[in-house]
Design a protein around this nucleic acid. Structure first.
Lengths: 201, 201, 201, 201
DNA sequence: GATGAATGAGGTTTCATTCAT
DNA sequence: GATGAATGAAACCTCATTCAT
């Protein structure tokens, strides 16, 4: 397997996409390489040809999904001016990602949880990184510096916000209730404002 | 297999406990019945004798863990007088459960997420039920009736609270950072008060 | 897989025997676990149940064959009185082993050569040990002490004798020419006497 | 595939050499065409282009190695005048080949032993031919005619001499002990003289 | 009730071979 | 001539399940 070629690049991308869809549909435990191959309309050997082993496929797939999610959110945050807007957009984008790419989030969770237990260095660390609320912390800190936000302990706050987002995502995985998700989001934004924002005079 | 006997009852309980521990350690995907049997110090046949198949074992195990968690929380809620206290205790108990029984929560998540995708009737519905914030809704409604709580839309609020709890649990699964978890909890309680409680005059 | 039981013991023995026969017939490279299972009249899984993996089966099989060969020779040597007789019997027994258990020797060679190249510590060292002509050296040394044998450099002599034996074995593997093998043996004994033995007065 | 061209000739030669090196390093069992291609710095397809299939490659490789060995020995024998010298040089050249081209001998053995068992016409018959001591027989017969050698049964003698050579080669494969190999050779020559040569008056 | 032996389907992986470019 | 992508058979191994003892 040569990694550099164009064909290779697109095949890998295609396989990763099909793998995500298949895992979303069948669950990580219940998805074999053969299933993925079948869904991709290729032979079993193709998977092995492009990925050294299943582990690598899963790892690369997860990394890709994580990156897509992060980029989706970052772009939205970047569009904003004030830190209040940034935070709102972070939350909005995260939740929008859930219903636009429910499968992606499901797979990230599925794989992440499934590997969380391993003592060895978890290769799905991008996932845990997400949980480390780095992005949110930065926004809050900036907002506090500018006087937009009240001065609250930043790290717990970032964790709580990210936790709420993730928890809503999990609920959505189970219920697929879009309307309710949006109501939660609306309320969440209001609560964040209440808790964090200084009144504009 | 006779289900009624005492011996049978304790064997099943024992197997379920060992199964949970094993899955927490190795991941659902990586745990065979033989692993569970070995950890329980019994032969493989014993598992088959007491559970019709692996699926049933997992289902019963998950139900048991769910029930333990719910009971743990309910007892704490029942101790309380006011609805504010009830809500606080609901949150406190949930989070306490995470670090007292991290493995339990991990396994519930592992199995739940893994089966969430199946179109067929999900046998792990107790899990999704949890996410339906029934318990919390009741507390909030009661509190609103008594004037303890502000009148906010109940269902989204219950979802947001449960989401935050679950999200913190997931973070804890990955980080095992107890101190941080407690800081988050403390802040969360304050935020809930801020959002929901009427000032006591 | 429990190793201690009687059933297990006999199954392992049986599998090893069938494995040796199959490898002798088909060649090491061309023998799959399924072939062995089929020849043994059991299912594929039985092999895996009794041997952790193919490597272990091959290793144990080789060790068994080596041990049988060594014991066969040792017993013959032990019957003898003088060192001349011991040496003769060592040679006779070795060669007799070839045509009584041609398959065994073939498999030992097959596996040994196949693994000789590996840089890592070769697990088939019993084989190389054989080549280290330990047994023969002892007999020669004893014979020289007693004055039965001329004083020649012992280590090269032992190597040359063992080499001749092994080389005849390889020829026999290819030709299966029993009559010729016996003629070679007869001459070899005469040559050894000529080279090594002092005339009896 | 055109066999006649110069390019083709050299490519085939190159591939055969790389194949031999690779098999010597990894063992026949553990060497894929891709390994050989990679070591040769070409693509997998090149192998297929020049050899109809793997079997043919192995067969041609073995034939080439055999021929190189035979030629190496024959040239040395041809340099000699007397039959005693011829025989000495046969032995010397054989053993020299072992430590100059250990890999070649290892591969010849590896492939030869592995295919020895096949009932079907063994394509690696050049190997068995070698063992048929043709060359040595001729030298001995000539020497006996000229009165250089004692009159002993020729065929067994040729077999014993070739057997000793081959056995030493096998030992060397395992031990890579050059010094010991040379001591054995020295002694072997002396023993051959003792057994075979008439005293020069 | 309990055990361990056996089964066989299914999973991952390897690899000789084919083929379009 | 050469390449690398694709195939699919076959290898090894795992494991839920069955069953005689």
């Amino acid at each position: 397997m040569k990694k550099g070629t164009f064909t290779s690049y697109f095949r890998r991308k295609q396989i990763i996409e099909v793998a995500a869809k298949t895992i979303a549909k069948q669950g990580f435990n219940n998805t074999s390489l053969e299933d993925i191959a079948a869904n991709a309309g290729v032979s079993k050997g193709v998977i092995s040809y492009h990925f050294a082993n299943k582990y690598n496929l899963i790892r690369d797939m997860t990394a890709t999904l994580m990156q897509q999610m992060n980029q989706f959110i970052k772009e939205r945050v970047a569009e904003s001016e004030t830190n209040t807007e940034k935070l709102h957009n972070y939350i909005r984008a995260s939740i929008e990602f859930f219903y636009e790419k429910r499968d992606h989030f499901l797979v990230i969770m599925d794989v992440g949880i499934n590997h969380s237990a391993r003592e060895e260095s978890n290769p799905f660390s991008p996932f845990s990184y997400r949980l480390c609320r780095h992005e949110i912390s930065e926004i809050i800190l900036a907002g506090q510096k500018k006087g937009e936000f009240k001065v609250l302990p930043v790290e717990p706050l970032a964790s709580n916000i990210q936790a709420t987002i993730d928890g809503l995502g999990i609920q959505y995985i189970f219920t697929s209730d879009r309307k309710h998700l949006l109501e939660c989001q609306k309320q969440m934004l209001a609560l964040v404002d209440l808790a964090l924002c200084n009144e504009k005079t």
